[in-house]
């Protein structure tokens, strides 16, 4: 494996986007992430699944420092993730995140939601930020809602806006934390379709999700986590048809059985 660089230099050709080595995390006494070793290449699509409490969300939240890991190394796009504020800022600029509960800013319009980060983080002029925002809103197929407010949109529309908002920063990596778990069934498809299109366009993504159909369609690798550790990972076909570990088998039977 290519050795990740320690400095803040970044090269856009860097192949390994994420590198986690021997990462451990505790919440108080609870050992929530155990010996995590993970590498993600540019262009890879990863799906992380597992029972609740297995640490999947914590794993991806460690990647943009929404959670702090206490042991091990994490490198994102060649930058080490530690307490250095400059590193954290840089990493957050290159990593986009979509949350289960959308977390759109309710007091700003859709367009303003998307423009906020480019203006204040990348110091983009307003006209250009608006152009970028409209471009991505068109990409997620809701440009006509630009002047509305989040409270006026349906859940599916809000989540698509959230995806557009993250894309406006033109990140190298997109993290999805159970993006469809809070949606009504009829709206899940529109969001998944958007994510599939994103994947088709070559975005590196790590998704925590229960949508196994999506995993089969899009994933390069499926990772199964249980009790804080990565138990099994494989290509989707092999993963779903030929799970190796007993725990994987149990989980799959629960998820796919009914």
């Amino acid at each position: 494996m290519a050795q990740p660089q320690n400095t803040a230099e970044q090269s856009v050709d860097q192949k390994t986007i994420v590198s986690m080595r021997n990462v451990n995390k505790w919440f108080g006494q609870f050992h929530v992430l155990r010996d995590i070793n993970l590498s993600v290449d540019k262009g890879e699509r990863i799906v992380v699944c597992g029972p609740s409490g297995s640490g999947k969300s914590t794993l991806i939240r460690c990647l943009n420092r929404l959670e702090k890991h206490q042991d091990g190394d994490i490198f994102v796009h060649g930058i080490e993730l530690n307490n250095d504020v400059k590193n954290i800022d840089e990493i957050r600029r290159e990593v986009g995140m979509v949350f289960q509960h959308f977390n759109l800013f309710p007091h700003l319009s859709i367009l303003e939601n998307c423009m906020l980060a480019p203006i204040w983080v990348r110091k983009t002029p307003r006209a250009e930020a608006e152009e970028i925002a409209m471009h991505f809103l068109t990409r997620v197929k809701i440009p006509e809602q630009a002047s509305k407010y989040p409270g006026q949109l349906s859940g599916g529309q809000q989540q698509r806006v959230a995806i557009a908002r993250a894309l406006c920063m033109q990140p190298q990596l997109m993290l999805f934390d159970e993006p469809t778990s809070a949606l009504d069934p009829e709206m899940i498809k529109e969001v998944l379709d958007t994510m599939v299109e994103l994947a088709d366009d070559g975005m590196t993504m790590i998704c925590v999700t229960h949508e196994m159909g999506f995993a089969r369609r899009v994933a390069d690798r499926v990772i199964f986590m249980d009790e804080g550790q990565i138990v099994e990972q494989n290509e989707p076909e092999a993963f779903f048809n030929n799970p190796q570990s007993d725990r994987t088998k149990l989980f799959l039977s629960q998820i796919l059985g009914h």
Binding site: N64, L66, R92, V95, F99, F105, A166
Partner: peptide
């Protein structure tokens, strides 16, 4: 979630406070 979303976008804490938290 509001502060988390802003941080995830790379917005620094003082600007997050000013534009996201305090208005709400």
């Amino acid at each position: 979630g509001q502060t988390e979303a802003a941080y995830a976008l790379g917005v620094r804490p003082n600007i997050t406070l000013r534009l996201v938290v305090i208005p709400q």
